[in-house]
């Protein structure tokens, strides 16, 4: 099967490749718009899930397989489920859109805010050092390299995040515990 793999790799991916990134990115934007604009809360949550999935595909298409899979595993498998559970368990009496206090501004305010945010983000990204260094070549064993980096170079942030998560878990358990009568 190796020669088939070679044939597969020899396909003109540079021409196809950009569509592999642009299409999921487009789906992600549409889904995000849906998540914000839809009236039905559960539909909005499902559109948000779709945008997570599309972002995961964008990561994979850009070559960052590990990040893409972790995005799918964590965001779709856990965070989206958490959002959905929160909606289900705290059933608002009217799921189809309560009026928010900012609704009176209309679409102009939203567009202006979004444009300002986009310009600021682009300015920051293009002036950061990450945009100036050339893209490194794909390592042979990317997952092993990520593992090494996490465990050797970035072990202190990893352990700090671990402590934070443990604290959050214990806090959640304490909040959810019923008070025992003596």
């Amino acid at each position: 099967m190796n020669d088939l793999l070679q044939k597969f790799n020899a396909l003109p991916w540079d021409a196809i490749g950009q569509w592999l990134v642009l299409l999921p990115a487009g789906v992600m934007l549409l889904a995000a718009a849906g998540a914000v604009a839809l009236r039905n809360l559960i539909h909005a949550a499902l559109c948000l899930t779709l945008s997570f999935i599309a972002l995961g595909i964008v990561f994979i298409a850009l070559g960052a397989e590990f990040v893409g899979f972790v995005q799918l595993l964590v965001y779709v498998g856990a965070v989206a489920m958490l959002i959905v559970f929160a909606i289900l368990l705290t059933r608002p009496s009217d799921l189809a859109g309560a009026m928010s206090p900012f609704a009176g501004f209309g679409p102009v305010g939203g567009i202006l805010t979004g444009a300002a945010l986009l310009i600021a983000l682009l300015a920051f990204i293009f002036s950061s050092p990450a945009a100036k260094t050339p893209m490194p070549s794909m390592p042979v064993a990317p997952v092993a390299q990520i593992g090494n980096l996490l465990m050797l170079d970035f072990v202190v942030p990893l352990q700090a995040v671990g402590v934070l998560l443990t604290a959050a878990l214990i806090g959640a358990a304490v909040l959810a515990m019923e008070d025992k009568k003596p």
Partner: peptide
């Protein structure tokens, strides 16, 4: 895939969305 096992669990998370 180099991260095949991770792919398995990542894609398997889609099942939960379907159940919901």
């Amino acid at each position: 895939l180099d991260a095949g096992i991770l792919y398995f669990f990542a894609v398997g998370a889609g099942t939960e969305v379907a159940v919901f």
